[in-house]
Design a protein around this nucleic acid. Sequence first.
DNA 1: TTGTAGGCGTTATCAT
DNA 2: ATGATAACGCCTACAA
Lengths: 345, 345
Amino acid sequence: MAQAAGVSPSTASLVFSGRGRVSDATRDRVLAAASELDYTGPDPRAASLRRGRSGVVGVVFEGRLGSAFLDPVNTVMMDGLAEGVAPLGAGLLLLRDDAPAETIDGPPPASLETAPVDAVVLVGCSGRLTQSLDTVRRRGIPVVVIEGDAGDGIPRIELDNTEAQRQAASHLRTLGHERVTILTLPWTAERVAGWHDASRERPVVDVTRDRLAGARDVYPDAAVFAARESTIDAGVEAARVILGTEPGDAPTAVIAQSDLLAAGVIRAAVQRGLRIPEDLSVTGFDGVRLDGFAPYVLTTLEQPAAAKGRAAGKAVARMLAGDVAPSIRFTCAFRAGNTTAPPRG
Amino acid sequence: MAQAAGVSPSTASLVFSGRGRVSDATRDRVLAAASELDYTGPDPRAASLRRGRSGVVGVVFEGRLGSAFLDPVNTVMMDGLAEGVAPLGAGLLLLRDDAPAETIDGPPPASLETAPVDAVVLVGCSGRLTQSLDTVRRRGIPVVVIEGDAGDGIPRIELDNTEAQRQAASHLRTLGHERVTILTLPWTAERVAGWHDASRERPVVDVTRDRLAGARDVYPDAAVFAARESTIDAGVEAARVILGTEPGDAPTAVIAQSDLLAAGVIRAAVQRGLRIPEDLSVTGFDGVRLDGFAPYVLTTLEQPAAAKGRAAGKAVARMLAGDVAPSIRFTCAFRAGNTTAPPRG
DNA sequence: TTGTAGGCGTTATCAT
DNA sequence: ATGATAACGCCTACAA
């Protein structure tokens, strides 16, 4: 305690917080004493307690951090989020949503249950995220959900997934495509790849469901294949199956629910000797910068990923200020690239 | 305060921490009272203060979070780190090392100065990281540095960069390559791409310097080109320059300091009509899973990225326990892929 | 402009 | 097995 040893008891607080009126002489004395004792400023933990704020916002992903950051769209969103909470002076605490393993004889693991967070941002929507939601609400902490349905009065940051995907589908329809396959993001949190009968089963994952609806508005009878995850490799694997059907049955276009999947489809198609877009049209979703994808420019829906993050940050700030934060629905922009063209013949 | 209202004053603590011997009857009474007041367990902030631990480990990257996660090697390392600090029960707080913008009239931004962290992991080594280091040491917080030189008694987690890179170079030498170009990671934190006279200038970035040394041990006269960042696109750009020299001068092999750069070189070479590895051999560094890179399998040095993260986590745990943590040097494994072959003719 | 007092919600220690 | 007490280090009134 600088004050006890040094000079004044708690005028020091004013000096360090900088918000008080302190005479230069006193300030100097305090600072001198502080450096004497090598006191390095207020203990953030004590300040947290006193203020009732820790300056930390939790970000909850499903599964491994590694897989969450595999898709650039998440990365960009995180950048936006970091920016969005900056005015709040908050840092981002990474949290996973799976059951915290028991630490033997140690402190309980930092989970949603116990993490010193002022607010929480939930990303995506596995089944477990619903559980996470309960935890957070029980704690009475403000929550914002990105790309997921939290029901009730919980602010959502989302996209016009259905409308946007409909645009891409219409684009293909206008070009004249009739045999179209829809390549979706994972159907459930379990992430199994495979064909689905979309008229009977609904995807569990919100994003998947909404984008699928948009595509099916235009192509109600399109075949539907779910990828195991949103990566180029998963796209390649899926495309091998999709394009592997009888030549006559093979689609002339694939509507992929993410840019990574679309990139995989294109790669697989090219390896098969197909030309893009002459032999196969492919649309993506996200509009992310695909590292190393030139010379292709995906026909895709550009989503404002960074803006989504920033909006989540702002929503958190408002809730922390006691306001209610509205849900926000961002609009994706259709961008025509060079991966779509009229079907052959 | 559950205790004040409910039943016992602070036996409640025992109930919630679970570490005390409490009779079932009492526990039930406490729990009942808690749910009555919908008290959801101890306030982590108060617990932090009392315990002197916040259960948070800071991870400092340079620049935007987004660019940090662009390279899968960082992502994998983060996974390892998350795992490594798990037994500690700690979460990971993402921090940037750049000057925190002033928040007008708000709380000071969560920076290294004020974040409620028990320990800090510094990743990489810009000039600013050195500064971050000062901050942290002033605060008396345990620090571990990954892939950077912190001097003094600060535990380092690093690779045998020089030796490993020498292996790749020797491999090329054995194959018979004589005209080799070295494509390095950024030379300085400023990230400008371009040729360098390696016999006069030393890279500022540790990793770049060490890997370069290994390559130059075998090819002292190799041309050296620094990429602007570790991405496929930067590799493509660099390769356009490197391969753009007079045909007779063009290298028969490129030693790239990261897999992403190597992938870019290969992509650019293929676009130029070169066959890999017949017309050009390329080696990478990292051994990360390159999404969408099949059928190529890079000849590369596999680094134990996840193990690095885990080791950092363990080091942090030891330091928090009062021990000194040793620096650790991991070994990379040379892995021959299908991107290297003897030069033509 | 500076000092004093009280309490934020815990948990560790000690006594019962 | 439980209760009492005392900090943990700060911040914000309010008093001087």
